Simulated scan of single mutants.
Amino acid sequence: MELQIPNPLLDVTMLNPGDLLELTGKIYVGRDAVLPKIVELSRGNGLEQMKIDLQGSVIFHSAVSVAGIGPTTSNKVEIEESIVPLSKAGVKIHLGKGEIMPETIKRLKGENAIFAVIPPVTALIKSKVIKVKMVAFPELGMEAFHEITVQKLPCMVAAVNGVSIYKER
């Protein structure tokens, strides 16, 4: 479903988990360091002073770097605790990755807002993994060296024959 954003009139009751959205328009980008500050600004007239209009907006849980823009985990305390207050301030769509708490999900409904994962890469990869085996450095936890067995894991060739998809445009 294509959505023009921001969209203050978006009725999220027409959406279902698993729906694919294509967003066109402006998106705010912030993560754990800045979102609590945006919440504070929303409690007064700080957003207006900074010319930030959250009505019908989208916030992508990410940072902007030269390496690109990708989602960060949305259930980090600083991020998840910002979701409901920013929804009250007008945000309609929160983009990120990972699961959020059931209480946050319930409270989003009351604010006519949604949480979406973008891109759904983590969920896609997880759905293609059949087996996970830690093979070295267990003391590193999730950053240990693992072997995974996958089935039909999609990927895109990014560089071949001296040419890259990341060339300057």
Rank of each mutant, 00 (worst) to 15 (best):
G46M: 06
K51A: 07
F60H: 11
E22Q: 10
I83H: 01
L108Y: 11
E147C: 00
I148K: 03
G90H: 07
M101I: 10
P17N: 12
D53T: 01
S57P: 12
V66A: 13
E80M: 02
G68C: 06
L15N: 01
E81A: 14
G18D: 05
T104A: 05
T149E: 12
V12T: 15
I69M: 14
A89V: 02
V58C: 13
I100N: 01
A116F: 09
I165Y: 14
G68L: 07
I165M: 12
I38Y: 00
T122A: 15
K92C: 05
Q49D: 02
V150L: 06
G90A: 05
L95N: 07
K131C: 00
I27L: 13
P8M: 02
K167Y: 14
E48L: 14
I165V: 15
M101H: 15
S82Q: 04
V84C: 05
P119Y: 02
G162E: 05
D19P: 13
G56T: 08
I148Q: 02
P119I: 03
G68N: 05
N45G: 10
I118G: 13
Y28R: 05
G25V: 11
P6G: 09
E78A: 08
V58F: 12
G30T: 06
G90K: 09
L47E: 01
H146D: 00
E103C: 11
T149R: 09
A63F: 09
P6H: 11
K167F: 12
I118P: 08
D32Y: 05
I93Q: 12
V132Y: 07
S127G: 04
E2R: 15
I52E: 07
F115M: 07
K106Q: 12
S164T: 14
P120Y: 11
Y166N: 12
K133C: 06
K26L: 07
T104H: 04
Q151Y: 11
D11P: 01
T104Q: 06
K152V: 02
M50R: 13
E80V: 03
I93F: 06
I79V: 15
V121E: 11
P36W: 04
D53K: 10
E111M: 02
M50L: 10
V129S: 04
V12M: 04
G56V: 06
V39F: 04
R31S: 04
V34F: 10
N16D: 10
N45H: 10
N75Y: 15
L23W: 05
I118S: 15
E143Q: 04
P17I: 08
P138E: 01
I125H: 13
E139M: 08
P138Y: 03
E99M: 15
E40C: 00
S82P: 03
G18Y: 08
V91I: 10
